[in-house]
Design a protein around this nucleic acid. Structure first.
Lengths: 249, 249
DNA sequence: CGTCCTCTTGATCCTCGTCAAATAGGGTGG
DNA sequence: CCACCCTATTTGACGAGGATCAAGAGGACG
């Protein structure tokens, strides 16, 4: 199977971009945005498509505009671990590095806003707002990676699944503005296998634990991917995390 | 038990600092270094001492000058996962955040080079060299966190131990200049329990796997902490990683 | 209506966690 | 210098949680 050519798409003004205020461009003023606008280009990927293969030369960096992508590491014997889950506004690529360290895959239909790497690096030199924001985002990602390490290293299968569902639930309500609580409905952007790769489990265990949570009334399913969480706090109880959230800033 | 007051120590010139070329100050020129020199202060901690408790107010950031520190997350029922291992030149603290997200503990005697947070943040605004370097270091740390996720999520106990030993071995030879290969001798900077917290195992399993590697001739022990690796490649075979390293830049 | 995928469920195995006890140093006070 | 104690570590026995292997079930699509 070949990596299908991604589609470039009509130009969208940065000003009306849905991730304008969260992505790497968040701090840019209108002048800076104009520069970005002139050098950016969109690329569209279908669910399941590979954006970049580990080890490939990569000449662009970019932001997820819509959809979900994953970073995955594969061991030589085929064991796979997801090491990044990229949601809208998340940044893809590492300035200063020419080859990809991980496979990047679109787990849903995906729209990306891309820059040629050289141009972006030049931007970073000249535009502190960009590199400041990138530092901020990288620190946030490091925090997320650390929470994830706790999940991988210390949580039970059931807690892992609950934690992942809570992450999706939080993200959904974040987009629509509020705090996560009460009844929440989500569409899983990952297959069972991808969830397993995220959580360091097998897909069978993922399936079993989802069934167990369903039987316990923590979640309801409509089809395979559509999940109803009748009571978000009840779900949180299953994650093994502190009840008081444990947030800092 | 109270957190013993750490000791402040005599002033050392940045120019003769052992981490001068790897820490957050690496890119600074001599003028910038002079400013850093005037606002920095050293703090010394003994092995086992806690540097910062999760949730505490923290008014400083800093670099590990010598020794090893760990970041640890504790779940409410006591399960613990190490989420950061800080070696000389690594940066501690997050600019823009006022409370610690994790426990920071000295796992060996530790010397830190500290800055008041406010002053450091001002530095970052005025000195691109500092924030550029911090971005670079944070990206490296994120990469390390991702390798770590593979270890936590997909490796067997034996592979985990081998991987950790390989990490220490690489670090040792890095300091003395070369590539890791052949016969290597290391002193473990972590207790069995801390190794378990790093790897998402119990200390019993850590102990058993170390014994197993010893019986298999992969390592030799002199005392509890002193490890001899007769053949580094033989150890690498036990890590489950690609034989060809898999490095990128 | 059959085929391909994804997902679910069952049966069994095995790695690693848990509980318990023994051992080894290392440091301290006599 | 030696006995004792405290902690870190090792080792053993056993059980449980997930992995593995195997078979079906539910949908989407041609």
């Amino acid at each position: 199977m070949m990596n299908l050519q991604s589609l470039t798409t009509p130009h969208v003004q940065c000003g009306s971009c849905p991730i304008r205020h969260r992505a790497v461009c968040a701090r840019c003023d209108s002048d800076e945005l104009e520069v970005l606008d002139s050098i950016k280009y969109y690329r569209k990927f279908e669910a399941g498509q590979t954006v970049v293969w580990a080890g490939d030369q990569v000449d662009f960096v970019g932001s997820v505009v819509s959809g979900v992508a994953s970073l995955t590491q594969t061991m030589e014997d085929g064991r796979r671990q997801m090491v990044g889950l990229l949601l809208p506004s998340d940044f893809v690529g590492r300035p200063g590095r020419s080859t990809a360290a991980y496979d990047v895959t679109a787990t849903t239909d995906l729209m990306m806003c891309c820059f040629r790497k050289g141009q972006f690096e030049k931007m970073m030199q000249e535009t502190p707002h960009v590199s400041q924001r990138l530092l901020e985002m990288t620190l946030d990602e490091l925090d997320a990676a650390r929470e994830w390490m706790v999940i991988l290293g210390r949580k039970t299968a059931r807690e892992k699944i609950s934690s992942l569902l809570a992450i999706f639930a939080r993200r959904n309500t974040l987009l629509t503005g509020g705090e996560a609580s009460g009844r929440i409905v989500i569409d899983l952007p990952l297959t069972r296998e991808a969830m397993a790769d995220y959580l360091g489990l097998t897909l069978e265990t993922v399936s079993r634990q989802i069934s167990a949570l369903r039987k316990a009334g923590v979640i309801e399913l409509q089809g395979k991917r559509h999940v109803i969480i009748p009571d978000f706090d009840r779900l949180l109880d299953e994650t093994g995390d502190d009840s008081d959230g444990g947030f800092y800033d």
